[in-house]
Amino acid sequence: MDWLSPSDFLAIPFNDWVNAFVKGWLVPNFRPFFRAIQWPVVQVLDGLDYVLNAVPMLLFTAILTTVAWRAAGRGVGIFTLASLFFIDLIGLWSETMTTLAMVVTAVLFCVIIGVPLGVAAARSDLFEKIQRPILDVMQTIPSFVYLVPIVMLFGVGMVPGIIATIIFALPPIVRLTNLGIRSVRADLTEAATSFGATSWQALVEVQFPLAIRTIMAGLNQTLMLALSMAVIVALIGGGGLGLTVFTGLGRLDVGNATAGGVGIVLLAIILDRISQAVGERKAVHTTSLAATLKSFFAPATRSEAGANHERAAPKGL
């Protein structure tokens, strides 16, 4: 006995609609446009990939270890050193550099796109209202779904992979930029305005420096999400450690798949610890962006003292 269901009377050809929209309209009309917007991504990625693969392993290890040590302390420094040696010893150095180049490129574009969007959302309730569901969709939609149209519009290869990564990793930095700027005390912004600051001056002088910790937390999240896309991106022709895992999967080569996976995990831990330390150490006490950046490379012990000091005296602001 068949129960009646609405589909007995009416069928909505949803898939046909989407096909018609993407294949029949979006791809033929906008393919050149999408080809054009990937140009900057290609430049940055090629440059980074070239540089990272050209730098000798030992030199790169020395640099990253120093950065990790200065920013996050001795423990993370030692961990970084050991991890990079391990990656080199299991023969995945070049793949790791490629993945790093992809991740850094994706994160860079997430910052370039995401921070202004976050600022705009903080300034306009309407913009935030419109933006929120879009970000929700970007975060919840399985990335496999948009791999197909991305391949149609951009082709296969590293760059489409980075575009997919940007879509997936963008929301946290937008959200946390918005949150960070919105949580700046209203009377501070008002004070800036009352002294004749333009809204740009208020942003640069007051809101942004006070929101930077929150924004750095968003950057950390974005970085982690970008790394988590490494394997998925291999599906559409991305290289690096993701490809190693993907190939291992295809051949049921458990050893290679695990090696690639371990490489991704180690890279993730290193980047996470460094970016987190950088975000936390950004005490409120810096005046300019240059000073802020400089402070990232000051010895870690001082930042801990700074953080304690701040925790001790949160009142009276």
């Binding site: 009377d187 004070a191 006070l210």
Partner: peptide, 20 residues
């Protein structure tokens, strides 16, 4: 803007000093 920069300034209840 010029008025706020040159002629009128304000002192706030909760000081509104910039902590950074």
């Amino acid at each position: 803007l010029s008025l706020r920069r040159n002629k009128v300034s304000m002192v706030f209840q909760h000081f509104a000093l910039f902590p950074h």
